[in-house]
Design a protein around this nucleic acid. Structure first.
Lengths: 152, 152
DNA sequence: TCACATTTAATTGTTCGCAATTGAATATGG
DNA sequence: CCATATTCAATTGCGAACAATTAAATGTGA
């Protein structure tokens, strides 16, 4: 039984994996929003905090490499986190080009308040952990192949 | 054999499907950029054009529902497409609240030039069509569950 | 050593993305 | 028929995201 023609048309919106990823990212953002509002964070700010909760006192460049973001995005974002008293920004003394980002005590403390976020997301995705893990692994593999293709 | 503790920590960046989706969306965007530059479109503008190539003379609201975007995003974007002579914006005569978006002849013509975009994306993803289709279906299902969870 | 390249953040300008509000047009209930 | 509610697009304000440029610090080779 042949598929409908429309399910094969590569120029159709609903056949494009990129739109699926794009719209899923926005859907995630809308689920995160009310949870992060209570922490006073936006989603990209939350990502930066996740990086810092794993390793503190990190140069801006390292944060950028982990999150695939550049200084044009991170510099103003980090200034907002500093204004919110969650991080400190200090020039490295060994290499004056680098700016090191360190958590304040409030920044450290926020990690505990943020513990309830992942379980809420899990509930909203209405999906088993193992399914989510395997989807995540597939998406990461695709992302890495795309990033590899950019270098050419 | 037990997993490492870090692979179970839900507060770790690399364990979060949302970050996988977020970073994959940006990776797609970077792959699309040089392709769309030749068409004079940004990625969100390309999405609007995909909608219009499927059905012309559509109210802003319908475009927003297809793309999960609101008028705050679409109104200025559509004005840019109009300035680029790709669409026309006209108030509906039956319902003066609605603004109908119609393709110009240039807008129609651009569809042919855009035919080469999906194959280039496929090549960059370095993945079989059937794998991409099943990933897309899983991601769409997740997105729809997330969007359903927002209503509560 | 010194000219030159590279690295690192910051800056500028454009475009998304969304919350909140506004104002006009339309629909609805009494 | 009329007051009220709803719908739709536009607007405003803020925070990403990124390209392109700048400036300062550091590395490198002749």
């Amino acid at each position: 039984m042949p598929r409908k023609l429309s399910t094969l048309d590569p120029q159709r919106l609903d056949n494009q994996i990129c739109f699926a990823v794009y719209s899923a990212a926005h859907a995630f953002n809308r689920v995160y929003k009310p949870l992060l509002d209570r922490l006073g964070l936006t989603y990209p700010q939350y990502l930066v905090m996740l990086v810092l909760w794993e390793r503190d006192d990190v140069p801006v460049k390292d944060i950028g490499e982990k999150l695939f973001l550049d200084s044009g995005t991170l510099t103003p974002l980090l200034k907002r986190l500093e204004a919110a008293h969650l991080v400190k920004r200090t020039r490295s003394s060994e290499d004056e080009r680098q700016v090191l980002i360190a958590l304040t005590s409030q920044g450290h403390a926020l990690k505990e308040k943020a513990r309830s976020v992942p379980p809420s997301i899990l509930a909203a995705s209405d999906c088993s952990v193992s399914e989510l893990v395997s989807m995540k692994d597939e998406i990461v593999a695709l992302r890495d192949r795309l990033n590899a293709a950019i270098g050419d």
